[in-house]
Design a protein around this nucleic acid. Structure first.
Lengths: 157, 157
DNA sequence: CATATCTCAGAGAGACTGAAATAG
DNA sequence: CCTATTTCAGTCACTCTGAGATAT
């Protein structure tokens, strides 16, 4: 009756969730998303970073450089939270932040050399987490899932 | 360049997320889950309740009655958070909470009559939110998605 | 004495808001 | 004067931990 004390933190209950909930897309998405979030967070924690750090660094890899507002739009981070993330990344010297000489309201953020090599390690960690996440699915099922989720998330306009 | 001020809170950025992230199951799940969570939360807010209230009431509908620990296991809520939820539901007279006469450590929680009628309204609200969520998918795609997510979430043992 | 259930206080990440400071 | 960007302070829902109180 009692959850064994050796269970990994939280995940999984002994008892089945209400049948009604088990059929709700929103409930299933929450469960699956929470699982994925946990796997990725644990993987990134081995480098002492969080998911928002990875998101921002990935965006910078693609954009070369960007203002904080642009970054926030790319990775769906609030301006306020993005500020904290960028400050932390700067403190670890993973990114460089400078005033834009043309428009001095903006901070131009760029990956540092160390940031690039760190990002490569993070990519590997995240890839492993993804593999664990989709492990119960066959290869074609994985593609199906990605396609279906893509449709759900697509900007409708 | 600026998100129009009439946008619904948060959702949706002007710019495309990094291509790398767009292919990650964990990222897609997070986005889709956040969307679903928002839709359901907004729906339930019209009754002044949150998702955890709905989860617990749904579990009680299926279980008839349960101790708080049993409830927590069913809906994956921490003992501590479940406590708060049950206290709030009791305050609104949606559930009844009594000491178990057989084992007086336990609180036996039961849906009240008012709780049942409220739950019926919540079910309708949640169903509408689900419909909005999966609206971009065809009927067979919706079933596929539910099946795939079910596999991902299944207890592996 | 040991264990189970509930309760309480609080930490930590994530999402969000409002307002000030600075620059265009 | 009005707007854009960054920064700061703080709220809120959610997840989780540790410790105490009460009952078995």
């Amino acid at each position: 009756m009692t959850p064994s004390p050796s269970d990994p933190p939280s995940r999984r209950a002994d008892t089945r969730a209400p049948a009604k909930l088990q059929q709700l897309p929103s409930w299933l998405l929450s469960q699956a998303s929470a699982h994925g979030t946990r796997l990725v967070a644990e993987a990134l924690a081995t480098e002492g970073l969080r998911r928002s750090h990875y998101r921002v660094m990935s965006a910078l890899e693609e954009l070369e450089s960007a203002s904080q507002i642009e970054l926030g739009a790319h990775v769906w981070l609030d301006r306020s939270d993005l500020h904290g993330v960028v400050v932390e990344l700067e403190r670890r010297e993973l990114v460089v932040r400078e005033r834009d000489p043309i428009d001095r309201r903006r901070n131009v953020v760029t990956l540092s050399a160390g940031g690039r090599t760190t990002l490569a390690r993070l990519d590997a960690l995240v890839a492993t987490a993804q593999a664990q996440l989709v492990e119960p699915l066959s290869a074609p099922e994985r593609e199906q899932l990605i396609a279906l989720l893509g449709k759900l998330v697509e900007t409708p306009d």
